[in-house]
Amino acid sequence: MATLEVSLSRDPEGAETTQPSRAPREIEAPASTAWPLVLAFGFTLIFAGLLTSVSVSLLGVGLAVAGCAGWFREVLPSEHEVVVPVVPDQFVPVSSRRVVDRLPFAPEQVRAWLPLRTHPISAGLKGGLAGGVAMAVLACTYGLLKAGSIWYPINLLAASVYAQSLKLGASQLNAFHADSFAIALLLHALVSSGVGLLYGAMLPMFARRPIVLGGLIGPVLWSGLIYSMLSLLNPLLESHIDWLWFVASQVAFGVVAGFVVVQQPRVTTRENIAFAIRAGVEAPGIIPQRTGEERP
């Protein structure tokens, strides 16, 4: 049966036209066999015998041995295969949608990675940590004014994940507790860095008003979510929170983090460059010599 099949292959030079290539007339495929089923059945019966009768397990052992032997004979000394005739298929991949729309962001480029320029990862980290400091200053100020202690908001923050902090009495909430402080510090640093990284990645995509988004809309939405949920889920924790100050500290984080992020220099998006190059690994001969500046 002589067949000619269109393959998806491209020639070594990367020519972009579809080239018909000659397909084989027959292809070898693994032969069907019942031995895996026999072995699986034997294996199951070995265990089932624990609950029923030892004779069931013995039958299982027999089937398992037979299954193993049969399986070995399937693959040794050579695999048992069948020859399957190739059925001609003249399919040629064609799209009914020939027109490709281009987003009008970078008309000078056929393909563009959006955003065209973005911040390095360090910008997000710096922004997050700076925002975290601003938030902490405001929260501690609130603690001093409300309870006369900077430890009050710190213990509250720890209480969101650390059960011992939630058990603290009213007077103990104003005192220093090393474990609560360590957990609050770690949590605050992690979350601030994480949100900062998110800002670094997202603010370039909302290039018109990054501070409004990151400094106002995001924190207010987040505060609204917490406000609506916390009274329902954890009324004890909620009773300790002054929501005006809470929103203010969230906004302080957003404004400072957003400001720091947008002040950082932008770099060209280099998503199309090999990870090894972006990671600074020099391996000439292994990494394709592409710099990312070859986009049409």
Partner: peptide, 10 residues
Amino acid sequence: MSTNVSAIET
């Protein structure tokens, strides 16, 4: 071709 090709599907 393998030496253990035993059947041809038609």
